[in-house]
């Protein structure tokens, strides 16, 4: 197809990378927004999820974990972005964008971390209590390491979500790589639209790939327990495959493929 060649030409033209609306600057904006929002949403969601999952409010936590994800799915991101932009908050530069990104990143973080902590192997947790660990020690040294894969799944999902939502922010007047696409639409430059989309898609895939890698590298369950280490024994099954009672929504064997 002709358009692929044209998009490639557009991408390899140096002038499209420099300047205020160049790819480099837009990519910087995008990465900055993603990083800031991921940090804020982790700071908000993870402590709440740990507290709920650790026993602070299991009943409340279970209901919240299910419903917040479902609600997040039903609410259109685009509508929230536009509503926030038109609200009084819209006068404060990037604030509506940041708020929307954080709002949509919280559900996956909260749900995954809550499930991870609350469904950490009860036998191991009991054993840790029996050894005389305090509640804080149980959380920090047993439940969190066991929940690590699910927590990281939440972080990864949230990060991809933020990258995607930040793209949409361009439609509502925000910055970021989406601006390359919207500018292309405004000028009927299909090659620019496609080129921008390729960069955005690659960014999303790169973020996903990097976080999968980080999850593999830092997973405490993979480390061999040293003698004298209080770390829990490696679980015999992956926490995402805990045997649970038959549910109407059985889950796939291989949850996430590389």
């Amino acid at each position: 197809m002709d358009v692929i060649g044209e998009a490639w030409t557009w991408l390899t033209t140096g002038s499209h990378w420099s300047g205020e609306s160049g790819i480099t600057h837009r990519l910087g904006e995008h990465l900055y927004l993603t990083g800031v929002c991921l940090l804020i949403s982790c700071a908000v969601a993870l402590p709440v999820a740990f507290w709920l999952g650790h026993g602070g409010g299991r009943r409340l936590g279970g209901a919240l974990a299910i419903n917040i994800s479902n609600a997040g799915r039903a609410i259109p991101t685009f509508a929230v972005l536009v509503l926030l932009t038109l609200s009084p908050l819209g006068r404060h530069g990037e604030l509506p964008t940041i708020l929307a990104l954080v709002l949509f990143a919280i559900p996956p973080l909260l749900t995954n971390a809550y499930v991870g902590v609350s469904e950490a192997d009860r036998g191991v947790v009991e054993a840790a209590r029996g050894m005389g660990m305090s509640r804080r020690q149980v959380l920090a040294r047993v439940e969190l390491p066991l929940a690590f894969p699910l927590i990281m799944t939440g972080v990864r999902t949230a990060a991809v979500q933020i990258v995607a939502t930040a793209t949409l922010a361009a439609l509502a007047g925000g910055g970021g790589l989406g601006r390359v696409i919207t500018a292309g639409f405004a000028r009927y430059h299909t090659e620019q639209v496609v080129a921008g989309a390729v960069v955005v898609a690659l960014l999303a895939l790169a973020v996903e790939g990097l976080l999968v890698l980080a999850q593999r590298l830092f997973d405490p369950n993979r480390r061999r327990p040293r003698p004298g280490d209080a770390a829990p024994p490696r679980p015999t099954h992956h926490p995402t495959q805990l045997p649970t009672r038959p549910s109407t929504q059985p889950r796939p064997d291989g949850r996430r493929l590389p």
Binding site: N112, E119, T153, T157, T240, Q249, R251, R255, R256
Partner: peptide, 10 residues
């Protein structure tokens, strides 16, 4: 039951 995992989580 526990949070259904399949489609909610990731």
């Amino acid at each position: 039951g526990p949070v259904p995992r399949d489609s909610v989580l990731d």
